[in-house]
Every structure is written in structure tokens, then in C-alpha cells.
Deep mutational scan, measured.
Amino acid sequence: KRPMNAFMVWAKDERRKILQAFPDMHNSNISKILGSRWKAMTNLEKQPYYEEQARLSKQHLEKYPDYK
């Protein structure tokens, strides 16, 4: 399994927040909201998630050095 990218790292927690506020919302609508919010964020706001992506990628490479 591939490591999560920056968007997926961010969306994991954001999806939970949306589901808590709107428990009956369909997944497709949640995904649209998440995509819009991510696009509206600045690079500075996204930076911590890119850093986490890099950490996860490094960890994955160490754990699975032959992964293609």
C-alpha cells in the first residue's frame, strides 16, 4: 500500500469533522467539499501536510525498500 499524499493526510481528519457535523452526507459530496477546501488553502497552510507526506514516504521506503 502506498503512503498517503499531502491531500490524503489533511483530508483524513477533515472528513471526520464533516461527518460529525453532517452524519448523513454522502461520501461524494464530502469529497467535493474537501477538494474545494484544499484548493482554497495557501501553500503555507498546506506545508505541514507536505512535510507529513515526506515523513510517511521516507518511512515507507525504509520499511519496503523494494516497493515499486
Rank of each mutant, 00 (worst) to 15 (best):
K1L: 08
K1H: 06
R2W: 02
R2L: 11
R2D: 08
R2S: 13
R2H: 12
R2K: 08
R2F: 13
R2Y: 12
R2E: 14
P3G: 07
P3E: 15
P3L: 03
M4V: 10
M4Q: 15
M4D: 13
M4F: 03
N5V: 03
N5R: 03
A6D: 03
A6K: 04
A6G: 06
A6L: 00
F7M: 03
F7W: 04
F7R: 03
M8G: 13
M8A: 12
V9A: 06
V9I: 14
W10Y: 07
W10M: 00
W10N: 02
A11I: 01
K12R: 12
K12A: 11
K12I: 12
K12C: 04
K12M: 11
K12P: 02
D13G: 05
E14P: 00
E14V: 12
E14W: 08
E14S: 03
E14Y: 04
R15N: 03
R15D: 00
R15F: 06
R15C: 09
R16W: 09
R16V: 13
R16A: 13
R16G: 11
R16M: 08
R16T: 09
R16N: 12
R16Y: 05
R16I: 13
R16D: 11
R16Q: 15
K17W: 01
K17E: 03
K17R: 07
K17S: 06
K17F: 02
K17Q: 06
K17T: 06
K17G: 02
I18E: 01
I18R: 00
I18H: 01
I18A: 00
I18W: 02
I18T: 02
I18F: 03
L19A: 11
L19I: 14
L19K: 13
L19Q: 15
L19N: 14
L19H: 09
Q20W: 02
Q20C: 03
Q20H: 06
A21R: 09
A21W: 06
A21N: 12
A21G: 06
F22R: 11
F22S: 14
F22W: 10
F22L: 08
F22V: 03
F22I: 01
P23E: 00
P23N: 04
P23R: 06
P23G: 01
P23V: 00
P23I: 01
D24V: 03
D24C: 05
D24Q: 05
M25I: 05
M25Y: 03
M25E: 08
H26L: 12
H26T: 13
H26Y: 02
H26D: 15
H26F: 04
H26V: 11
N27G: 13
N27C: 10
N27A: 13
N27R: 11
N27S: 14
N27F: 10
N27P: 14
N27K: 13
S28K: 10
S28N: 12
S28E: 13
N29C: 14
N29A: 15
I30R: 00
I30K: 00
I30Y: 00
S31Y: 03
S31V: 11
S31T: 14
K32E: 10
K32M: 08
K32C: 05
K32F: 05
K32L: 07
K32W: 05
K32P: 01
I33E: 14
I33W: 07
I33L: 13
I33H: 03
I33T: 05
I33R: 01
I33N: 00
I33K: 05
L34V: 01
L34S: 05
G35P: 10
G35V: 14
S36A: 13
S36K: 13
S36D: 05
S36C: 11
S36R: 11
R37N: 08
R37C: 08
R37D: 02
R37A: 10
R37L: 06
R37M: 09
W38A: 00
W38V: 00
W38G: 02
W38P: 01
W38Y: 01
K39A: 11
K39F: 02
K39Y: 00
K39P: 00
K39V: 06
K39D: 08
M41S: 01
M41E: 00
M41Y: 00
T42S: 14
N43L: 10
N43W: 11
N43G: 12
N43M: 11
N43T: 14
N43E: 14
N43D: 09
L44S: 10
L44E: 15
E45I: 03
E45P: 02
E45T: 03
K46W: 00
K46M: 01
K46C: 01
K46N: 02
K46G: 01
K46P: 00
Q47E: 07
Q47N: 03
Q47G: 08
Q47V: 06
Q47K: 12
P48L: 04
P48C: 02
P48A: 08
P48D: 05
Y49M: 02
Y49F: 09
Y49K: 04
Y49A: 04
Y50L: 07
Y50W: 04
Y50Q: 04
Y50D: 07
Y50I: 07
Y50A: 05
Y50E: 09
E51N: 07
E51D: 02
E51Y: 04
E51T: 03
E51I: 15
E51S: 06
E51C: 04
E51K: 04
E51Q: 12
E51V: 07
E52Y: 04
E52R: 06
E52P: 02
E52F: 03
E52M: 07
E52G: 03
Q53A: 15
Q53W: 13
Q53D: 04
Q53R: 04
Q53M: 09
Q53T: 10
A54W: 05
A54H: 10
R55V: 07
R55F: 07
L56C: 04
L56P: 05
L56H: 07
L56V: 08
L56R: 08
S57K: 12
S57Y: 12
K58H: 08
K58W: 05
K58M: 11
K58A: 11
K58T: 12
Q59V: 10
Q59D: 07
Q59N: 15
Q59T: 09
H60C: 12
H60P: 11
H60L: 07
H60M: 11
H60Y: 10
H60N: 12
L61S: 11
L61V: 14
L61H: 14
L61M: 14
E62M: 05
Y64A: 14
Y64T: 15
Y64I: 14
Y64K: 12
P65T: 08
P65A: 10
P65K: 10
P65Q: 11
P65L: 07
D66L: 06
D66Q: 10
Y67F: 15
Y67C: 15
Y67Q: 15
Y67W: 12
Y67E: 15
Y67R: 13
K68L: 09
K68W: 02
K68Y: 09
K68A: 15
